[in-house]
Design a protein around this nucleic acid. Structure first.
Lengths: 191, 191
DNA sequence: TCCTTGATAATGAATATTCATTATTTTACG
DNA sequence: CGTAAAATAATGAATATTCATTATCAAGGA
C-alpha cells in the first residue's frame, strides 16, 4: 500500500483548505484555489472527498477533534484548580502551534458547515468541558452558578484573546495569558 | 402594482439578507433566495446596491453601527460602574429586540466581508469601547490591566451568552443576565 | 503491474447581472 | 387645483459568468 503518500496528499489538501478559508473567508474557498495551493490537481480532491462540502465538513470535524483533545489533555488531574489552569494554557498552546487551524475553527463555527447530526457531535465537546467544570463545583473549588455559565466565563475570554492575537498576526505574550487567567479565575472561583 | 418607498424596500432587502444568512450561513446567501424572501424582483437588488457583495457589506456596516450605537447609549453617564452596567444590559436589549441582526453580526465577522479600509471603520467601534473602559481605570473603579484585556473580559462572555441563547431560540432570563454580570464584574472591578 | 497522482479540457447546472419595459411618485405649469 | 411631463423605482425574462464536477490519459513509485 502506498498509504503514506495518500495521507500526505490529504494533509496537503487539509492545510490548503484552512489557508484559503482563513485568507478569504469560508464563503470564498474554491476548488481551484485549493488545488493550486496544495499543488495537486482537481481530480485528486475527489479521490479523497465526496465533494467540496464534504471536504469542508471533514476538515472541520478533524480540527474540532484535535482541538478538543488538546484542551482536555489533563482531564484526569484530580486537583480541579490545576485542571482548569491546564485547560486554559493548553488552549493557548494549540493556538500558538496551529494558529491557522484555530482561526478556521472560529470561522467554520459561523458558517453552518454541519448538518444537525454532525453538529450534535461537535456540541458534545462543549458539554464535555461543562461536565469537567461541574466537578469543580462539586468539590467546592468553583462557584456554583447556572448551567453553562461557568464554561462561558472561562472559554469566551480565552477564545476572544486568541482570536485577536491570531488576526493581528502576533504571538500572545505568556504573561498576558497568565494575567488574563488570573482575572477570569476571579469570576469563576468559589471565594 | 403597489410600490413602497425606496427605503422601505431597502429595509425589506436588508431583513431578507439577514434572515437568509442566519438560516443557511453567509456562504449560501443567493440573490434568488433574498428576492424571494423580500418579495421583490431580482433587478431591484441592483437599484439599491452595486452587487451582491456590496449588499452584504452595507448590511453589515449598518447593523454594526446600530449595535454600537445601542451599546454606547449611556456613554455620558459619569458614574463608571453604572455606565458599564448599562453597557452590559443595553447589549442584551439589542439581542432581545433584534436577535437575527445580532447573529448576523456574529457570522459576518468571520466571513471576511470587508476590505481593509472598511474593516478599519468597524474596528474603531471596539476601540471606542476600550476607551470608555479606560475612563473607569483612571477613576479607580476598574482594575488596571493590559490594553484590551478589560473590554475582552466584559464583552466576550456577553457575546457568547447572547449567541448561545439566540441559537437555541430561547430568550435569556433577566436573572441570568444579571448573574453573569455580577460574575464578570468580579474580574474587572478594582477591589 | 497496480495504485495514486498530475495535467488538461469539457460539461452543465447554478446563479449573478443586465436592461428594456412598466409602474408609481413628484414636480411644474396652466 | 388639475394634469402633463419628468424623475424615480421596480420588474423579470434574457444573458453572462462562475465553478464544481467528470472524463481522459500519461507518469511515477512501491
Amino acid at each position: 500500500m502506498h498509504r503514506s503518500s495518500k495521507d500526505r496528499t490529504r494533509q496537503k489538501l487539509q492545510d490548503a483548505v484552512v489557508a484559503e478559508a482563513v485568507e478569504n473567508g469560508i464563503a470564498a474557498v474554491s476548488i481551484a484555489g485549493i488545488v493550486k495551493r496544495a499543488k495537486v490537481s482537481a481530480g485528486t480532491v475527489y479521490v479523497h472527498f465526496e465533494n467540496k462540502d464534504d471536504m469542508l465538513r471533514q476538515v472541520y470535524l478533524q480540527l474540532k477533534a484535535d482541538f478538543h483533545g488538546c484542551l482536555t489533555r489533563h482531564r484526569d488531574e484530580a486537583d480541579t484548580a490545576k485542571m482548569v489552569r491546564h485547560l486554559w494554557f493548553d488552549m493557548f498552546d494549540f493556538v500558538r502551534d496551529r494558529p491557522q487551524d484555530f482561526l478556521f475553527l472560529d470561522y467554520a463555527h459561523a458558517a453552518k458547515l454541519l448538518p444537525p447530526r454532525e453538529q450534535a457531535i461537535a456540541d458534545e465537546y462543549a458539554e464535555d468541558i461543562a461536565a469537567l467544570l461541574r466537578r469543580g463545583v462539586d468539590d467546592g473549588t468553583l462557584a456554583p452558578m447556572q448551567d453553562g455559565l461557568l464554561s462561558l466565563l472561562l472559554v469566551a475570554p480565552a477564545m476572544q484573546l486568541a482570536r485577536g492575537a491570531v488576526l493581528a498576526g502576533r504571538p500572545i505574550p505568556p504573561e498576558l495569558i497568565s494575567q488574563a487567567f488570573d482575572r477570569v479565575w476571579l469570576s469563576i472561583a468559589n471565594p
